[in-house]
Amino acid sequence: MLILTIESTCDETAAAVVTGELEVLASVIATQEKLHEKFHGVVPEIASRAHVERILPVIHETILKAGITLQDLDAIAVATTPGLSGSLVVGLMAAKSLCLALDKPLISVNHLHAHIYACRISSGKNVFPCVGLVVSGGHTHLYLCHDPIHFELLGGTIDDAAGEAFDKVANMLGLPFPGGPALSKLASRGDPKRFKFPRSFINEEAIKFSFSGLKTAVRYELAGRGKVDFQSLQVDPQLKADIAASFQQAVVDCLVAKTFQAVDRSKLSTLCVGGGVAANRLLRDTLTAAAEERGLELHIAPIQLCTDNAVMGAIAVEQYKAGQFSDLDIDCSAGLVRMATE
């Protein structure tokens, strides 16, 4: 079995070819492949037009690298939710067009489920059933993953995603974007216990995250309440490092506490973690230690599968086996949006 997977939910335009045995024949991510040389050096970070410009060269390169032809494919998979609608639609239209022209079935992939499935790919073993944590710039969600095609959302952030909190606090500290790695580096020189920043919901039953109040608390500590230009703010370097360390500790404490709360309630013994923030060293180490102590099987996606990529779209292999195909008239769905249930 050969499946072409396409990813265009946010900034990256990516494609991969995977086999039924989850072997990756090719994986291309536009921003890493220096495709911008083909576009006169202009690659806007976030723009559906950028996806439009990149999607065909990315697919072409992926097929070439895989050493196959389009006709060899058994199906075409594309991430259709969640994401920015203008970006999602580009990947979806490309996938639909290929399906129509080649007479191949279409598989619609959930981008967040795919982030967890990255652990299945990297571990090379069946990780289901498991509790899944997706923690990234746009999302912080916990799932009960019954099997590779049945994911139950347990809860998520009610305001900022963890990665967003990292980026915004990094911005306040005058660090460059993306803030995660820079903030962690600064935090390594700081005292994580100096400031007692809030840890929302940590002692509550609800599986929820909130990082907005934490961000505000950091702001008060750093710059008070008035209008400030964070880029020109003069702050003692040790204070900065201590704030970074205390902030990072608060985020990690929340993520770890809620995750193990979910694991305990699920009575499962496997935990899978994916998404860009899963690259954070403190989070990885804390999860690893806690999992060891509890005798849990922990899988954290390797760094290259943490950030957006198309390889994790190999979850489509499971959908293919389950006969989960989509009609060519499906639409993409931008948000994790639900109407009020009352």
Partner: peptide, 18 residues
């Protein structure tokens, strides 16, 4: 009329549609 828990920050995704 939207479920409060499904309304989060759109900073990263730019736009959330309901």
């Amino acid at each position: 009329g939207v479920d409060r828990n499904s309304i989060s920050s759109p900073t990263f995704t730019i736009c959330h549609e309901f």
